[in-house]
């Protein structure tokens, strides 16, 4: 009914063109990797001359993908579980109690999320090497927990705050002791939030390059670090097999992202820094 002025329509079109351009290039970038990983030879044409799956077999053997995947699963799994065990109780305390120094503690949790990993990663890796923890799976797990524990805390605080504390009071009135309160009242109420937070931790940890890179040894490389080394040493092996590995990496990441998006709003992945 209401006809928008020409200027406003033009402006809106410009913005959609911009967004479209970004999305097209993003999809193009991903598609280029996928197509190249299946292509036999691809030089001056729009698409490869033929298709094959042999790059995957090559990548599987040459890059020791089974080992790397196993390491990735172990490291990421440990990080997810430990950050839940350390983070959720801390979030509960932060959400339910007002204690002296709470603001300082809050700042303490915000810092590892605001300071980029490469900045604090180098001194942290130094300390871990001195303690003979780096270069092993344990070092990778410890390093990755630094951003994920605060992340779980910050995601869980608002979630716990929106659960009415009177529910817990009621459970106490009916005689539930702390342990039963936790297992029978709190955990079921908190489960959706914990699930969402841990899924996000999972996605972030699979993709966490810097901290793993700085602390991993030859036997504790995760997929993303192995991918980095493969790209770094490009020319040693065919580019298609690197792209095959990149596809394996994308699939592992995006499957979890898809699952996570069923439970969380995409903006939650970045909105951590909002106070």
């Amino acid at each position: 009914m209401v006809v928008r002025p020409v200027g406003e329509r033009l402006w809106s079109t410009c913005i959609w063109v911009l967004v479209g351009f970004f999305v097209v290039n993003l999809i193009g970038m991903i598609a280029a990797v996928v197509v190249n990983s299946f292509g036999t030879r691809w030089f001056t044409t729009w698409l490869p001359t033929g298709y094959t799956t042999r790059w995957y077999i090559l990548a599987w053997n040459e890059f020791h993908l089974p080992d790397i995947l196993l390491v990735t699963i172990q490291a990421v799994g440990a990080v997810v579980i430990l950050s839940g065990i350390i983070g959720v109780p801390a979030a509960y305390a932060m959400a339910r109690r007002d204690f002296p120094g709470k603001r300082a503690v809050m700042t303490l949790f915000l810092l590892p999320l605001l300071v980029p990993p490469i900045t604090y990663g180098i001194p942290m890796a130094t300390v871990l090497y001195q303690a003979h923890l780096a270069g092993s799976m344990l070092g990778v797990i410890l390093a990755n927990l630094v951003p994920t524990v605060p992340f779980v805390v910050l995601i869980m605080i608002p979630f716990i705050e929106q659960i009415d504390p009177r529910v817990e009071a009621a459970a106490r009135v009916f005689g539930a002791r702390t342990f039963r309160l936790f297992t029978q009242v709190l955990i079921p109420l908190l489960l959706p939030g914990i699930l969402a937070a841990l899924l996000l931790v999972l996605v972030r940890t699979i993709a966490m390059f810097e901290l793993t890179f700085l602390t991993a040894g030859p036997t504790s490389q995760t997929l993303v670090v192995a991918l980095y080394y493969a790209v770094f040493a490009a020319g040693v092996r065919p580019g298609q097999s690197i792209d095959a590995m990149a596809v394996v990496y994308m699939i592992t990441t995006l499957i979890w992202l898809l699952i996570a998006l069923r439970f969380v709003n995409p903006t939650q992945i970045v909105a951590r820094a909002k106070r």
Partner: peptide
Amino acid sequence: KLLTAILVIPITLGTVLIAEGLLTY
């Protein structure tokens, strides 16, 4: 939600993959 979900993909994939993707693209 669809647009925001698409835009979360590069954040999730991380810089290493974007580097490799752009090298090809």
